[in-house]
Nucleic acid binder design. Structure first.
Lengths: 394, 394
DNA sequence: TGTGAGTTGGTTGTTTGAACAAACTAATCT
DNA sequence: AGATTAGTTTGTTCAAACAACCAACTCACA
């Protein structure tokens, strides 16, 4: 309760934020419309907007259309796309994904950089070069505003606490880049930013309070949106569903984890093993499947059942409005999705949570990071921001 | 964002609520202390308190001690214990538990009524008699303020959606008692109210934002406190962990659920089966265990391992600050708890979530219901209320 | 033991400032 | 011209902040 607003000054600050959120979510929008949406007097909105404009976050786009029964044309307001930009990174297994976004979340540039087999010490110079390169071309008023990193592992207190595929616990990314650029730097788990993406960039989810994004890459993790907020847990480990063990009444010793049976890695390894092959990739699996290879087909049948079970368990644990799957393998084999849905439907007794795919999972990851760091830049961590509303390019 | 405070009237209302919450949480408390806690001017607090007093929720208890360096004695304020009372029920398997509480959550009376084998139609008259009886003895100013029911099943929209042990989907308790008494009537899942109990009645949990209460009775369910709020899920089914299925890569047909292996019922049935007995109760199991019966000991060893696994999975899913166990069987056999903790510690790689027992689970259930309905009476659903702060009985 | 300085709790009357309301200007339509 | 809508200006409102006060206590010192 100590964060609740109590006096007029705090009320004023919050109302400024509300106006900014309205501009963000409904741009281009007129003052009078904001006034109606927020139930604030139009003169109040005008005053609040003046303050915002002094900060530089917003700008006038020109006049809109007048109502068809006469009346003055409204002046359309929008987020200032020339204010600055954020840089958002995703440490993939094979590629470092890099995205540059403006304050409104529009994609300014996107690049993949091959980092296969590189150590973090070798990747850092590539990141620095990227930042330098973008900075040189920049002509915004405030330049770099913030940086986000999506981590395939767990993050606590803005530090990597577990990173199975890329050793990086000896490098403090947040500290390093905050020192270097004096801007907010944010690390977040990859499943978590995917979940944030669905909340903030997908207009279809506007009214949904609870969402689970199940990310199946080299490991398995879930990003949890609960009551419109990202639930990180006490130590940033909420949604680590890949570590779950079976409870079947008769286990001895250390039981196997979900991840051991149905991560993308586990599936590829199993097929590899049964086919006596080495160095197989996802593309090999997709090819084998499409060629009708029996071993691959049967392994992926098991995968389908397991994923259905994982969805069922997640639905029982969190009871979300919707479950998203973020899985490149499933993206490449879209025919598996209805089979997963069928298996899931068989298990669930009454309530069926809709299952949807998050297309282009790397893009989603980067945009989720963009949302988080943009919020930090604007000081709007808890506001409802809809990044899918795009003002027309001028 | 439409629920955010925007104008002075709403601000005023919220500040009144804040003062009420301060009185509730720190009673007996003086105006000046509230002023300091809320960072509101003392004259403002005085004015807000005057409003509250008109409503009747608060009262003056008399003067407190002056500071030891001199100064006027403070006037101590507290929740008006004579304002009214709430009635809180828990449908146990063998007993209907009934508790009467005042506005501050103090227990005014508690009774168990044998309902073994009765149908809901036969239980309703018993509830009505109880309400009438309490009402006759009452001398508060506003009498009955609200009613809560703890349900061993799922609840959505204040209606029972699933109730395995007591058929009650044909009775609308909320509708019936709201009509009859014109007060708020609240139904809630038993694990959920247990979780609310830990949040609101256990001072030790004051700073903890995330808690999981695992309730192992005839079934298994979890109550989730996430970010200090009860997470019910989209359909009131969050935390139904008893329905989880094992993901082990090779299941066929319908897999068994957690509940089938390690609910109290499952354990009793298994021992019963292996000993060729009938109609065993928890007390029989406890006796057999204490007598050193081999079958019972070995079955409970399996139970211990399963519970450890359930805790581990819950910790991975929700990453809470603490896990509570609410289980009469474990309460009766306290020596099992350290064994559960040991097994859990073996599974968890790094972060160990503390495990605690909720003693006297029926009491906890009733008090959790009391908290929820009291909040509704006061219109303070989302405030942080600490029911463990008790003013001295006058 | 009595008095006065210092301290704290609480009230009263005044000021402040952000939201509001009304009257205004501006710009469109029919 | 009259109706309608967008936005500004000017003055009002009212809840919180403030300042000055009263009430009631402690303690030191005579």
């Amino acid at each position: 309760m100590s964060s609740a607003i109590r006096n007029r000054m705090q009320l004023h600050q919050q109302n400024i934020q509300s106006v900014l959120a309205e501009v963000f979510n409904h741009q281009p929008i007129s003052r009078i419309e904001i006034s109606r949406n927020l139930a604030l007097n139009k003169s109040t909105v005008s005053a609040l907007y003046r303050d915002l404009k002094e900060q530089g976050y917003v700008e006038e786009l020109g006049e809109g259309d007048a109502s068809n029964v006469g009346g003055r044309k409204p002046v359309l307001l929008a987020i200032n796309r020339q204010y600055g930009y954020t840089m958002n990174f995703d440490f993939g297994y094979r590629h470092l994904h890099v995205m540059q976004n403006n304050l409104s979340g529009d994609v300014l540039s996107y690049r993949q950089i091959n980092v296969m087999g590189l150590k973090i010490e070798q990747i850092l110079p590539l990141i620095n070069a990227e930042l330098k390169n973008v900075s040189a071309k920049d002509n915004t008023s405030h330049g770099l505003l913030g940086i986000s990193f999506a981590i395939h592992g767990t993050v606590d207190q803005n530090k990597v606490t577990y990173s199975p595929f890329l050793a990086m616990d000896h490098v403090d990314l947040a500290d390093y880049y905050t020192q270097k650029y004096q801007v907010p730097v944010l690390l977040e788990n990859e499943a978590n930013v995917s979940a944030v993406y669905e909340r903030d960039f997908n207009e279809a989810n506007d009214q949904l309070a609870n969402m689970v994004t199940i990310s199946i890459h080299r490991g398995i993790g879930a990003g949890l949106i609960i009551d419109q907020k990202l639930h990180r847990g006490a130590h940033g480990e909420a949604g680590e569903i890949g570590r779950s063990v079976p409870i079947d009444g008769n286990w001895t010793g250390t039981p196997g984890k979900v991840e051991d049976y149905c991560s993308e890695d586990a599936i590829i390894n199993q097929i590899q093993y049964e086919k006596n092959a080495t160095d197989m990739t996802r593309e090999d699996v997709v090819r084998l499947f499409n060629e009708g290879d029996k071993v691959t087909r049967s392994t992926l049948s098991g995968f389908v059942k397991s994923v259905a079970g994982i969805i069922y368990n997640a639905a029982n644990n969190f009871d979300p409005d919707v479950v998203f799957l973020s899985c490149p393998l499933l993206e490449a084999l879209p025919e598996l999705e209805p089979r997963i849905a069928r298996f899931y439907a068989k298990m669930a007794p009454s309530i069926l949570v809709p299952i949807k795919q998050t297309p282009n999972s790397h893009y989603a990851t980067l945009l989720g990071g963009c949302s988080l760091v943009t919020r930090e830049v604007l000081g709007m961590e808890d506001a409802k921001l809809n990044f899918s509303a795009k003002a027309p390019i001028q």
